[in-house]
């Protein structure tokens, strides 16, 4: 049991208590004798750390933006040659239809005249003429 004494400066000292300096030394020693973690304990902590580690933030996969030029380029790569042929044929057909070039007139005229000369009540136009029409002399 210690007895508490009051000093003239108002401080207190317990008679029989450990010297404050000794106590400070003891506490300082305790600071340097800290329990060191064992390898097994550290590995347990690491297992926990890895198990609870958040997944790296997933970057959303955004499909590349495709413009109309890219689409057109793709089409030309895939279907360029057939499409060009088809476009040419379409354009030529339209031109022939509207312009009616003179070089085609005799052909269609012959067909319509041949149809008109037949003495029938039915007017027929042979779009696919027989061959002998063209083989006759004169």
């Amino acid at each position: 049991m210690t007895k508490r004494l009051s000093g003239a400066d108002g401080s207190h000292k317990d008679e029989g208590a450990m010297n404050p300096k000794d106590l400070d030394d003891l506490l300082a020693s305790a600071r340097h004798t800290r329990a060191e973690p064992s390898a097994e304990f550290l590995s347990r902590l690491l297992v926990d750390a890895y198990a609870n580690m958040p997944e790296p933030a997933a970057v959303p996969v955004v499909p590349p933006r495709v413009g109309w030029r890219a689409v057109l380029r793709g089409w030309l790569n895939d279907f360029g040659a057939p499409a060009a042929g088809l476009a040419c044929a379409t354009a030529a057909g339209l031109w022939i239809g509207f312009a009616q070039p003179a070089t085609l007139d005799p052909v269609t005229g012959a067909l319509t005249l041949a149809a008109a000369s037949t003495d029938t009540t039915e007017e027929t136009v042979e779009l696919i003429p027989r061959l002998d029409t063209w083989l006759g002399e004169g």
Binding site: R34, A35, P37, A49, M53, P56
Partner: peptide
């Protein structure tokens, strides 16, 4: 760094913090 999935950061934190945490808990 750990929160972004850095395993080396996890190791460094374990080595740095565990002696203090364990020492305090032991006392």
């Amino acid at each position: 760094l750990y929160a972004r999935g850095d395993r080396a950061a996890a190791r460094t934190l374990v080595l740095r913090l565990s002696p203090r945490v364990l020492g305090y808990a032991t006392r």
